[in-house]
């Protein structure tokens, strides 16, 4: 027999007061992305198809680098929550838990891969500029 009151065992499981958390988080990130995504589409559209040296120099400039970093961070957080909401709508139990964990994993791996690549390109771009 567990000496927990029903109230105690229900605490921290969500719903009360945190029920609108996901919705508000998606609203906040969505509004940011409305401005960021068109900028990023422009940056990526300009970058794709160019030789590597030009791509590195492009992403080492402040505007492309910052826009790409912001899209990676805000976009992937937006994805992780949105995917979680979808998973919660269609699955339950252990499937739901594993799927939410996987979606989070994918989101953070992409986010940090982009940040690493950007950091390195900024560094390489600075070196190339310095050697000119």
């Amino acid at each position: 027999m567990r000496y927990l009151t029903p109230r105690k065992s229900a605490e921290g499981l969500g719903a009360a007061r945190t029920g609108t958390h996901d919705h508000w988080f998606m609203t906040v990130t969505a509004v940011s992305l409305v401005f960021l995504v068109p900028c990023f589409v422009f940056v990526l559209g300009t970058a794709i198809g160019r030789p590597q040296a030009e791509v590195v120099l492009l992403f080492s400039r402040p505007f492309p680098a910052i826009v790409t970093a912001l899209v990676a961070v805000v976009g992937m957080l937006h994805f992780a929550r949105g995917a979680k909401t979808m998973i919660e709508d269609y699955t339950g139990g252990i499937t739901r838990e594993l799927a939410v964990i996987a979606a989070n994993g994918v989101a953070y791996v992409i986010m940090f891969t982009v940040l690493y690549a950007l950091g390195k390109m900024v560094f390489l771009g600075t070196l190339i500029e310095a050697m000119k």
């Binding site: 990526l44 794709i48 590597q52 791509v55 590195v56 992403f59 790409t68 990676a72 976009g75 992937m76 994805f79 949105g82 995917a83 979808m86 994918v106 992409i110 891969t113 982009v114 690493y116 690549a117 950007l118 390195k120 390109m121 390489l124």
Partner: peptide
């Protein structure tokens, strides 16, 4: 909205891979 949003993870993967390769 849900389908497009979640499908864009493929684009994110491909783009992250391309950026990593460029670096």
């Amino acid at each position: 909205t849900r389908i497009t949003g979640n499908a864009l993870i493929v684009t994110a993967l491909l783009t992250a891979w391309w950026l990593l390769a460029a670096a």
